[in-house]
Amino acid sequence: MFIFVAIFVLIGLAFNLLGAISLYRFPDVYTRLHGATKCTTFGTLFSMFAVVAYALGRLVMTGEARFGVLIIHSAIAAFVLLVTNATGAHALARAAHRSGLMPARAVVDRLEEFDEVRAKREGAQV
């Protein structure tokens, strides 16, 4: 059990660290979102696995039900985090693009072309 906890905690820390570094290393908000969302979600997921492994070990050793409760609540927290982080990143990316922030060093931007076409069409109708 100790080995599993140690491995999960170390993987989690490594990815959390990469997520924090990506905020400083990438050039614009979209690439930062990549690093911040994926790496921190994965890292936090692994911290939860570590907690689950620890609680499972204690549950087997002591047989107290509260460790089972800890496992269930950790699983719910992991699911909530998985859904909310991805959706939050999506909302931030959309807001950034609508506020006129273009991706740095982009080779192609279909959304900007699309927005221009839509603006022209709506302008023509008015």
């Binding site: 990469l18 290393r25 990438f26 979209y30 991706p103 060093r105 982009a106 080779v107 192609v108 959304l111």
Partner: peptide
């Protein structure tokens, strides 16, 4: 993140 090799686009 480590290599910094990106080519972004939408």
């Amino acid at each position: 993140v480590i290599t910094g090799e990106i080519r972004p686009g939408i």
